[in-house]
C-alpha cells in the first residue's frame, strides 16, 4: 500500500534565551492509510512538538530552522505555501487536542463551530451544513444531537466536549487524524469510550491515526505500530508486538515496566500490591541537550556504560520493522 504520510529526517530547532536548541532530532516514520501509529514518551520528549510540526502550528517566532521532509501523498508539506496548506489543515489532516475543556470557543454554540469547519472546506449551503453537523454529533455518540447544536461548550461535560472536538475533526473525512493525548483530561471510563469511538472512526472512514500518549497501556490496545520518543528523538520504533514483547532500548523497557499490573487474587489474599516502578530522574532540559555529546538517556539508563557519554547512538536496524538507538545493540 502506498504511504499516506512520510516523514523524513525532520529536524526542528528553536530560538530560546539559552541559544539555539534542537527540539526534534531526525524524526522519520511513515503512515499507511487506516493505520494507527502510536507515539509514546514522557512529558517533554517531543511527542506534541512532532504533531504541531506536522500541522505547522508552531509559532514562527520560535522556530530557528526546520529541516527534513514531510510528504503527504506526493506533496511536501514543509514547502507548501501557507495558503495552500490551510486547505489541507482541518480538511485532509485534522487534529484533536489534549484539553477538550479549553479547545472549544466558549462564546459560540457547538453547532456554529461544527458548521464553520464544514463551510470552510466544503461547498455546502448553511442548511446542509446544519444537517451534516447533526449527523456528525450522532456519529460521535452525543445523544439528542439536534438539540445539542444550540448548546454552548460550558453546558457539556468533558467527555461530551471531546466528542464534539472529534466531530469537528472528522467533519471533512480526513485522511490523517492526529490525536494528541485526547484523554488526559478525562476520567477512565470516558477514556475507554473515546478510544472506542476513535477505533470505530478509523475502521469506518479508513482514517490513519497518529495517537500520541504517555500511556503504553493504551497503545497496547490501539496501535499497529509504536514509536518511542525521548528528548526529541525516536529511540525505538517497531510493530506493536515487537515493542511490547521484545523492547530493546532500555528506555522502552523501563516505560513498559511502568505499566501498573493489578493482581486481584493476590490483593484478595492480603498480599500488598507490587510497587509501582518508575524511571529515576527527569528528561534533561532542552538547553542541556544541545551540548550533550552522548546518548540523551545516559544519565538515567540502568545499563549505561562508557561509550554512552561520548557518542550519540545511531539507529540500529534489528529486523525488517524494528529499529532502536542504543549502543548495547551494536554487534
Amino acid at each position: 500500500m502506498a504511504d499516506l504520510l512520510k516523514i523524513e529526517n525532520l529536524e526542528l530547532k528553536f530560538n530560546t534565551r539559552h541559544g539555539i536548541v534542537k527540539v526534534l532530532d531526525n524524526i522519520s516514520f511513515t503512515l499507511k492509510p487506516g493505520e494507527i501509529f502510536g507515539v509514546a514518551g514522557e512529558s517533554g520528549s517531543g511527542k506534541s512538538m512532532t504533531a504541531m510540526a506536522l500541522m505547522r502550528l508552531i509559532d514562527k517566532k520560535l522556530i530557528h530552522s526546520i529541516q527534513g521532509k514531510i510528504f503527504f501523498r506526493d506533496t511536501n508539506l514543509l514547502e507548501l505555501p501557507e495558503k495552500e496548506f490551510r486547505k489541507l489543515r482541518g480538511n485532509k489532516i485534522a487534529m484533536i487536542f489534549q484539553e477538550p475543556m479549553t479547545s472549544l470557543n466558549p462564546v459560540f454554540s457547538i453547532g456554529f463551530q461544527i458548521t464553520e469547519t464544514l463551510l470552510l472546506h466544503q461547498n455546502l449551503k448553511p442548511k446542509e451544513a446544519d444537517e451534516k453537523a447533526i449527523d456528525l454529533l450522532a456519529r460521535v455518540g452525543l445523544p439528542d444531537p439536534k438539540k445539542r447544536l444550540k448548546n454552548y461548550p460550558h453546558e457539556l461535560s468533558g467527555g461530551q466536549r471531546q466528542r464534539v472536538m472529534i466531530a469537528m475533526a472528522i467533519s471533512c473525512r480526513p485522511d490523517v487524524l492526529i490525536a494528541d493525548e485526547p484523554t488526559t483530561a478525562l476520567d477512565t471510563t470516558v477514556q475507554a469510550q473515546i478510544f472506542d469511538l476513535l477505533l470505530d472512526i478509523q475502521q469506518e472512514l479508513n482514517t490513519a491515526i497518529i495517537l500520541i500518549t504517555h500511556d503504553m497501556g493504551v497503545l497496547a490496545q490501539m496501535a499497529d505500530e509504536i514509536a518511542v520518543m525521548y528528548a526529541g528523538r525516536i529511540v525505538e520504533q517497531g510493530l506493536r508486538d515487537q515493542i511490547l514483547d521484545t523492547p530493546e532500548h532500555p528506555y522502552t523497557q523501563s516505560l513498559i515496566a511502568c505499566i501498573p499490573k493489578v493482581d486481584v487474587r493476590a490483593e484478595a489474599a492480603g498480599k500488598p500490591p507490587a510497587d509501582l516502578s518508575e524511571i529515576a530522574g527527569v528528561v534533561p532540559p532542552l538547553a542541556e541537550l544541545s551540548t550533550l555529546k552522548g546518548c540523551s538517556f545516559a544519565g538515567r539508563c540502568p545499563k549505561v556504560f562508557d561509550t554512552c557519554s561520548t557518542l550519540k547512538p545511531p539507529h540500529f536496524r534489528l529486523n525488517k520493522t524494528q529499529t532502536a538507538a542504543c549502543h548495547l545493540l551494536e554487534k
Partner: peptide, 11 residues
Amino acid sequence: EYVTAARSIGM
C-alpha cells in the same frame, strides 16, 4: 487552546 484549534481546522 481554542485559537490553536481554530487554526488547526484551517482558518
